[in-house]
């Protein structure tokens, strides 16, 4: 199976029921691989797209920038995610999709996605479910941005990324790659870069998590999740809580 499709299969199997027929339909999708440099725009706000981007390497984010130059990153996406799935029905982008690290995506035409969705109502339901989970994550980020202090937001972000990368098999023990800059982290958390750095040093000195040389290491899961007020139910995985997964270490 193609690596990109394999990640999508892992993601969808982790959040719902994927029948073997639907799995075969996904495998049959024609894809076109494209590589993006860090910071490069994948789909720009205001443009129309005729395909969706399935991430299979690196990280990409969705963001919008004010006229003042201040940017908010709304979501961070990893292998297996299709961050612009909504372009299938809302082709004109109301935000930008940007490579947060060097990234590789598989472009799948709207036409081919629509074709397999027309063949299977269960697959349509699964894609819909995945889109609803995406919206649930937005609510969770909104709560953090509006109500939580920076250490809580940061702990919550690391917990979410850990659970999501575990789902698609990107974790190595208690670590995962996160080759993104602290400016990006700050724009996700809605803080200044200096305050994000300071907050990270704080979490590090408490021995909860480390983020260095593009890798996150979860040092104490329970304490980090407690600080981040992290309840993974909004991620709606069907494989049980990440804390029960066999490969979990460093708890």
């Amino acid at each position: 199976m193609d690596k990109a499709i394999e990640f999508m299969v892992r993601r969808l199997s982790g959040v719902g029921q994927l029948s073997s027929e639907d799995r075969d339909r996904l495998v049959s999708l024609p894809i076109r691989r494209k590589r993006f440099a860090k910071g490069e725009e994948i789909v720009a706000e205001g443009t129309s797209s005729s395909s969706c981007c399935l991430v299979f390497k690196g990280y990409v984010h969705r963001s919008k920038t004010l006229i003042t130059g201040d940017r908010q990153i709304f979501s961070l996406h990893m292998a297996g995610d299709i961050p612009d799935l909504q372009s299938l029905y809302l082709p004109r982008m109301d935000h930008s999709l940007v490579a947060t690290s060097p990234a590789e995506v598989a472009l799948i035409s709207h036409f081919s996605i629509q074709t397999i969705l027309d063949q299977s109502s269960r697959l349509t339901a699964l894609f819909w479910r995945d889109t609803l989970i995406d919206a649930a994550a937005f609510r969770s980020w909104m709560l953090m941005l509006g109500q939580a202090e920076a250490p809580v937001r940061m702990a919550h972000l690391f917990c979410e990324l850990y659970v999501r990368s575990q789902l698609v098999g990107l974790n190595k023990g208690n670590t995962f790659a996160l080759p993104i800059s602290q400016v990006d982290i700050a724009d996700m958390l809605g803080t200044s870069t200096v305050h994000a750095n300071r907050t990270l040093q704080d979490l590090r000195s408490q021995g909860l998590v480390d983020f260095a040389r593009g890798r996150v290491t979860i040092l104490h899961w329970r304490e980090l999740a407690e600080l981040g007020m992290f309840d993974e139910s909004y991620l709606h995985t069907v494989v049980g809580p990440a804390t029960d997964w066999p490969t979990r270490e460093g708890t």
């Binding site: 920076a150 870069t193 200096v194």
Partner: peptide, 8 residues
């Protein structure tokens, strides 16, 4: 950056 940081 300094003003935003001190305010936070």
């Amino acid at each position: 950056e300094a003003v935003m940081t001190i305010a936070s």
